[in-house]
Design a protein around this nucleic acid. Structure first.
Length: 191
DNA sequence: CCCAGGATTGACT
DNA sequence: GTCAATCCTGGGA
């Protein structure tokens, strides 16, 4: 099994790190899978929580790289990012479930397998990520983040980010083309 | 101090 | 397709 990338690897701008993260394996307490979809949020990005500078909520985004930035979405859901260069982070939007699938099913009774980690809120729920994980180093227990031989299992596609009202033109959503574990399909590039 | 508005999801028409 | 749930951040007064 390979190790997590060096700290320097994370200290690049999130929009550069994000596509490199596709195909890596992300787990919490042995529950997780292959990263299928991510979004990048930069420091000077009007859609980013860090855009207006350091606040109590977004403090992790201005701390060391390779840490988790966890926030509450719409008052109900948790979402998890991996911090990159200062003020930038990669939002984890979808995994292909690979380990601890029974645990995920128990946590999300009734949901289809392909939806277990399809979306940032579902992903955090399936892995039982919450604010208690904010600021933790994703290269160390209880997290694992590692490269797999072969890299991304398919072509990488990019498109506009989902659910934002600013920065809508930036193509900073990245995913594995055609994966059935995406939160939503990527619009095919027009000819 | 106030309150509009979310990096979403699931239920329902 | 539409829409409510739910809560807390942070900008503005």
């Amino acid at each position: 099994m390979r190790e997590a990338p060096d700290l320097d690897w994370f200290q690049r701008p999130a929009s550069v790190v994000a596509p490199d993260m596709l195909g890596m394996t992300f787990e919490l307490d042995g529950v997780g899978g292959r990263i299928i979809e991510v979004e990048a949020y930069e420091a000077d990005d009007p859609a980013s929580h860090s855009y207006r500078g350091l606040t109590p909520r977004n403090a992790a985004m201005f701390g060391p790289a390779a840490r988790a930035y966890v926030y509450r979405s719409y008052g109900l859901h948790w979402c998890v990012n991996i911090v990159c260069a200062p003020g930038s982070a990669v939002l984890l939007r979808a995994l292909e479930p690979q380990s601890g699938v029974e645990t995920m099913r128990r946590r999300r009774a009734g949901i289809e397998d392909r939806l277990l980690c399809a979306g940032p809120g579902r992903l955090a729920s399936a892995l039982a990520i919450d604010l208690g994980h904010n600021g933790m180093d994703v290269r160390r227990q209880p997290f694992t983040l590692r490269l797999l031989p072969g890299g991304a299992p398919g072509a990488i596609v990019a498109g506009p980010r989902i659910g934002i009202s600013k920065g809508v033109d930036l193509p900073w959503r990245f995913g594995i083309a055609g994966s059935r574990h995406l939160s939503r399909p990527f619009k095919r590039r027009s000819a």
